[in-house]
Design a protein around this nucleic acid. Structure first.
Length: 423
RNA sequence: GGAGAGUUGGCAGAGUGGUCGAUUGCGGCAGUCUUGAAAACUGUUGUACCGAGAGGUACCGGGGGUUCGAAUCCCUCACUCUCCGCCA
């Protein structure tokens, strides 16, 4: 959520910036500013009436104490009118506040200067490429066929026990999964991230904190009886650790990581790229989260990109990095880089990581602040990225490392799998 | 699932209708003293909003109510803890 103070002072810049998302928020901002002006004037009147009433109440108390009952009762009569006015103004203030909040919820984050204008994924910029397309001297299989051939993943069993999008991993498939998680966590730890195992369900306040609510309500599984939400990513519990926190100084750089399963309803996306591991309702992911001083955000994002690059290179995967255009950048993000690995067997690029900076957008909702040099509370910046999402990595590993003899496990992973080939 | 007790400032913990944004202790910050440190002493120390400022308003788990006046009384919701039961 954008800060109202920012809208007051940087209206034009916000309008200009959001054009890159093909949005014209001029009207919305004008509505907000009008409501804000109304709010302030109502608020000022309300407060002066409250002040009057406070004075009167004190006087009445004193009169009673001095035993001047009559005078006290006379003074009481005077308050009635003021109390009516107070109630009236209070209602107005509440109404304006609600209006402002509603409108603020509709405005996405302002794209960073690096973000290109654009409508959809076709307008994303490729900023980095690594590796060569693999060639095969045999007919390569897609991962869903490999999964069956080597008994690694059972999709049908998942359908039986739960439903589509909830596969079973079995045998070496399960071990590979576990190995990747361990590998990613170990790399994150080496890079200075502290590991957490967070809750997999969160309360409503947390879902609001990172912005899943109110926009993406339908995308989360909701436990209605207890009013909990299954996490769609570890970002939610990890970032919410710092909800309502004021860091004591401006000397901080917080780096968190955690492995969790992620749960997504994926409502409305049936039929599109859903084959095999490409899109699941439950999948595993190691997430990295950072909380930074605003001056360090750009550097932090660079570090995250380097970290993810290292992971993919150690796994021997061909990949590219995209800088998302305005139209493709997530609601809360100011700048997002996607990592895609190339799947030769599917002849497709698969998204395996998304690294974003949110600047103050999340921190504002989270009320995550730090004391700056002037002893003032200032909003922190938050960032996060996948490092990495497992299913498509597994798909790419299987497809790209397949040989007639079996699927070769990359060197870096062998100490975690305990085997070097799946056959 | 049953029964009970709680929720107050960074923490601990007072406060049952007005002088309470809130006693006190600890912690934090600044200073005095000291070669330095500790101790001791003194002062200071929440958040948000409105206002150019002076200043004002709100916040004692959330919401509502009673009252001229609520941390304090009433209603309601949420959460936490303890005991019993069940259980990984």
């Amino acid at each position: 959520m954008l800060e109202i103070t920012r809208i007051r002072t940087e209206k034009e810049a916000i309008i200009e910036g959001l054009k890159k998302r093909n949005l014209d928020v001029t009207e919305t901002l004008d509505q907000i500013l009008a409501a804000d002006a109304n709010w302030r004037s109502a608020k000022t009147s309300l407060e002066s009436i409250s002040a009057e009433l406070n004075v009167l109440a004190k006087e009445i108390g004193d009169l009673f104490k001095q035993g001047k009952q009559d005078e006290a009762n006379a003074a009481k009569a005077k308050t009635a009118d003021l109390k009516n006015k107070e109630a009236e103004l209070k209602a107005k203030v509440d109404e304006y506040e609600k209006e402002i909040t509603q409108l603020l919820y509709t405005i996405p984050n302002v794209p960073n200067e690096l973000v290109p204008a654009g409508k959809n994924e076709l307008d994303n910029e490729t900023v980095f490429e690594f590796g060569e397309k693999r060639t095969y001297d045999f007919e390569p299989l897609a991962h869903w066929d490999l999964a069956k051939k080597y008994d690694l993943i059972d999709f049908e069993l998942g359908v039986k026990v739960t439903g589509a999008g909830f596969p079973f991993y079995r045998g070496k498939g399960a071990k590979l999964q576990r190995a990747l998680i361990s590998f990613f966590l170990e790399e994150a730890e080496k890079a200075g991230y502290e590991e957490f195992i967070p809750p997999l369900m969160v309360n409503e306040a947390s879902a609001y904190g990172t912005g899943q609510l109110p926009d993406k309500e339908g995308q989360m599984y909701h436990m209605q009886v207890d009013d909990f939400y299954m996490i769609p990513t570890a970002e939610v519990p990890l970032t919410n650790i710092y909800r309502d926190v004021i860091l004591p100084s401006e000397d901080f750089s917080i780096k968190l990581t955690g492995y969790t399963p992620c749960f997504r309803r994926e409502a409305g996306s049936y039929g599109k790229d859903v084959r095999g591991l490409n899109r699941l309702h439950q999948f595993d992911k190691v997430e990295i989260v950072r909380i930074e001083h605003p001056t360090n955000t750009a550097k932090a994002l660079e570090e995250m990109l380097e970290h993810v690059k290292g992971l993919l290179e150690k796994l021997g995967l061909q990949y590219r990095i995209l800088r998302l255009c305005g139209g493709d950048t997530g609601f809360a993000s100011a700048l997002t880089y996607d990592f895609e690995v190339y799947s030769a067997a599917q002849d497709k690029w698969l998204e395996v990581s998304s690294c974003s900076r949110f600047d103050t957008f999340q921190a504002n909702r989270l009320k995550l602040r730090f004391k700056n040099a002037d002893k003032k509370n200032q909003l922190c910046h938050t960032l996060n990225g996948s490092a990495l999402a497992l299913p498509r990595i597994v798909a790419a590993l299987m497809e790209n490392h397949q040989t007639p003899e079996g699927i070769v496990i990359p060197e870096a992973l062998r100490k975690f799998t305990g085997f070097d080939i799946i056959n």
